[in-house]
């Protein structure tokens, strides 16, 4: 079983996130692996770990990111969790990519892995916490012409049939979906609890190799990606005005009435 797991490096959710020149500021000191991609790495590792011994030995989990060099932080974290290999796609031509540019680059990298040996599954997180798009997995499935099983809460692999069955809860529907491999799978934050890396893996992750691929290596047309190929362009980005001071009431027996008064006063009931 060969799995590509897609990981993104994003500004830490509790840091002071901001824009400059219409782009998200990605300060390596305030960035981390997108938490939801930890669920993806965990899901990929578990799928391999549950295989029979002989198939397990022949398996490979490759962490893949499209990012400038600080993206290595995400890949190192994936190494700490236990992936076998890490690839970063970096190219000036990719700067300013929209969802479609990112998908084009990711798909090209998956195809390049595929040229070495079949890739049975691409596993992703349910959203990148910077943009909260939740669209790259479905786009990647469309681009690669593979079935997309997204927002999985449980994942069951049927090795003999070469098929994957997931359950998911999306909006107000609960579904069970099934598709043959090769496929694209995105896992929800409810799918698992990501493992904590052990000391040995943390030490080893420091020196493990990271392969770097360029757009040219992947045969990606520079005009189709990055700012040049983007179908939307940021005009303005500005912090929203802070809310006014909070009106704080300490409950001494009348707190509920004060709350009701506030709502009535502001025409909210």
């Amino acid at each position: 079983m060969r799995i590509a797991v897609l990981v993104k490096y994003v500004p830490d959710i509790s840091s002071d996130r901001r824009f400059a020149d219409g782009r998200v500021v990605r300060d390596p000191a305030e960035g981390s692996l997108n938490e939801l991609d930890e669920n993806a790495v965990e899901a990929a590792l578990r799928l391999v770990e549950q295989l029979p011994e002989d198939q397990r030995a022949a398996s490979e989990v490759v962490a893949l990111t499209v990012a400038p060099p600080p993206g290595d932080l995400a890949l190192r974290k994936a190494y700490q969790m236990g992936v076998d290999r890490a690839v970063r796609v970096t190219d000036d031509a990719l700067a300013g990519s929209d969802y479609f540019g990112t998908t084009t680059a990711l798909a090209a990298a998956v195809r390049r892995l595929e040229a070495e040996a079949p890739v049975d599954l691409v596993v992703t997180g349910m959203a990148a916490l910077d943009g909260l798009g939740s669209v790259v997995p479905a786009l990647l499935a469309a681009e690669l012409g593979r079935p997309g099983l997204t927002f999985a809460k449980t994942v069951k692999l049927d090795v003999a049939a070469g098929a994957l069955t997931i359950t998911r809860e999306v909006d107000d529907a609960a579904e069970t979906l099934r598709a043959p491999l090769p496929a694209v799978l995105s896992v929800a934050d409810t799918a698992n609890t990501p493992r904590l890396p052990n000391f040995r893996l943390i030490m080893a992750a420091r020196t493990k190799p990271i392969e770097e691929w360029t757009a040219a290596d992947l045969g990606v047309d520079p005009a189709a990606v990055g700012a040049a190929g983007a179908r939307s362009r940021t005009l303005r980005a500005a912090p929203r005005p802070p809310r006014g001071e909070v009106e704080l009431v300490v409950d001494k027996g009348e707190g509920g009435k004060a709350l009701a008064d506030f709502l009535i006063r502001n025409d909210l009931v």
């Binding site: 809310r243 909070v246 704080l248 409950d251 509920g256 709350l259 009931v269």
Partner: peptide
Amino acid sequence: FEISDFAVVGDLADVLPQAAAAIRAH
């Protein structure tokens, strides 16, 4: 509270039913 317009420091088991009753009365 940092992002609130109005806040009550208190036990929700006391505050919410009192608020609900006051709103119904209103």
